[in-house]
Structure formats: structure tokens, C-alpha cells
């Protein structure tokens, strides 16, 4: 399959990108690393009139480190993070998760903003960033808005992206010194889409205890206060039946699917306990 005939634009700043988006309306698609949109174009699952390539916008590759966290430009690649070109304010979690995304060839081009906007439930960033309490900043004609990363994902392949808006950055809070995190995903093979993900962050200094069940059918299941499920993040306090019940209550009907998600979270917690 080959894409339909489309126009291509490569704006050099966000303002130009936004005006192109406003002019073209819904027939425009924003492309960054093209690791998801590329195949979708080829399969003609998307048939845009205009493709706006944002990879040459310098401000989307900016990284700004602050005492309370870091802001990562939308076009930062997984490999940028994996290779440590982006400071890891999350005690190694960002590098570790980046390293496990798909294959290196995908990581070289795929971007953090693209991954979140594509909103594939089995993707890594949505689950880990939700556990970290990260947020995304969107810019549109009406200005900027910042929302929690888990709210940005509305459902499978559906992001809360209003007409004319562009995701510009992702903000990750800095973990405290005593913080622990865990991340565990189940894949049929290396680099393949995950079929269950568990993630947790326990940060006593900030009073954070978050657990996320990812790679569901839709949005990840985010538990903002997970102390009743994972205690202080040691494996001994993991309440498997309660996690199973939570998954069931969230619509996960299939017992085997629930089991794998419970196991993924249990192993994430175990990983956190040993970190």
C-alpha cells in the first residue's frame, strides 16, 4: 500500500505550525517520527490532505530542567532519552523505559509527544508517565493548557487534542531521593506491543504512591493513591485480589487478561522494592 497524494509542509516554528493547522483544518495530520503515522499512511488508514512535519521546529526539541522536574519538548526521541541526552529526573525510570520501547530503529525516530498523541494503549510512555504524575502542555489558538498525561488519553488511539492544538512539551516531576519506581511489561517477544504493563512510583518525600495498570483496551487504570494496593511499595504488601477486583471494576472481563495485568503490576512493585 502507498499513501494517498498529500501536501507536505515543514514549518520552522510552532506559530507557523499552528497557522498551518488552522488553515488546513481536520484534513491536516501532524507528523514527527512517523513510526505510527507512517504505516497508517501507507495502509491508507489515514488519508490527509496535508502532512505537517514538526521535526524541524527547534523549540519542540528543547529540554528545560528545573528544581521540581523537567520539561521535555514533544519531538525529543526515545533514543534521546535512552542515551541520556535528556537528564533523567525520575531516578533512571525515563532511560529505562525508553530503552525498552520497540526496537532501536523505532526509538531513533519515534518521539515522546508522538507516542502520547497516538494514544496506543499498549505504548510505554502513557503508562510510565502516568505513574510519574507527568503532564502535557498543549498550545493552540487560545493559548496554552496543561493537563495530566492520563487525561490527555481519552481512549484507544484518541487524544484530547482540540482542533488546531499541538502538543508542545511533557513535564515530568522530579522524584525525591527516597523515591522508588517499578515498571514491568509483558510482551510476546522483544520489541513487540505489550499485552500487560504495570508501573508504580512511591515517593515518600512528596507523599506520592501511584500505581498504573497499562496496556488495557483503552486508557490505563491510574490509581493516584495506591497505598491500599501496594502499601509502601514492597512486594509483601501487594494486594493481588484487590488489584484484580480493581481491574474487573474497570471493565477487564477476561480472567486471563486480568491475571497478566495483576502479575505485571506485582512485578513492577517487586522491582520498585529492590531498586
Amino acid at each position: 500500500m502507498k499513501p494517498v497524494d498529500f501536501a507536505y509542509a515543514r514549518p520552522m516554528d510552532v506559530t507557523a505550525a499552528l497557522s498551518l493547522l488552522a488553515e488546513a483544518g481536520p484534513s491536516a495530520k501532524v507528523i514527527a517520527g512517523s513510526q505510527s503515522l507512517g504505516p497508517m499512511l501507507n495502509l491508507r488508514l489515514v488519508q490527509p490532505g496535508l502532512v505537517i512535519d514538526i521535526t524541524h521546529i527547534a523549540e519542540l526539541r528543547l529540554v528545560e530542567e528545573r528544581p521540581d522536574g523537567i520539561s521535555i519538548g514533544a519531538c525529543i526521541t526515545h533514543a534521546d532519552i535512552e542515551d541520556g541526552r535528556v537528564p533523567d529526573v525520575a531516578a533512571g525510570a525515563l532511560r529505562d523505559v525508553a530503552h525498552g520501547i520497540a526496537y532501536r530503529a523505532v526509538r531513533n525516530r519515534g518521539t515522546i509527544g508522538g507516542s502520547l498523541t497516538h494514544a496506543d494503549p499498549s505504548a510505554d510512555w502513557i503508562t510510565m508517565l502516568a505513574a510519574l504524575g507527568a503532564s502535557v502542555t498543549l498550545r493552540g489558538a487560545a493559548g496554552l493548557r496543561t493537563i495530566p498525561v492520563e487525561d490527555y488519553m481519552l481512549g484507544a488511539l484518541e487524544a484530547d487534542l482540540r482542533p488546531g492544538e499541538l502538543l508542545v512539551s511533557v513535564t515530568v516531576p522530579r522524584l525525591g531521593r527516597a523515591a522508588r519506581w517499578g515498571y514491568y511489561k509483558l510482551c510476546r517477544k522483544t520489541g513487540e506491543f505489550a499485552h500487560a504493563i504495570g508501573a508504580c512510583v512511591v515517593d515518600p518525600e512528596r507523599g506520592v504512591c501511584r500505581a498504573v495498570i497499562g496496556a488495557t483496551e483503552a486508557r490505563p487504570i491510574v490509581v493516584a493513591d495506591a497505598r491500599h494496593l501496594i502499601g509502601d511499595g514492597t512486594q509483601e504488601q501487594f494486594d493481588g485480589p484487590a488489584v484484580d477486583e480493581l481491574a474487573r471494576a474497570s471493565g477487564m472481563e477476561d480472567a486471563i487478561v486480568r491475571q497478566t495485568h495483576v502479575v505485571a503490576l506485582r512485578r513492577a512493585v517487586a522491582g520498585a522494592a529492590h531498586r
Partner: peptide, 14 residues
Amino acid sequence: ASTFADYLLPGPTE
């Protein structure tokens, strides 16, 4: 399955 994302083949690590 209409792509290799859905039709899994073993790779080098498998």
C-alpha cells in the same frame, strides 16, 4: 492480522 504487528514472527532474540 494484516501486518507483522499482528502476525508475530520470531526475531533474533527469540
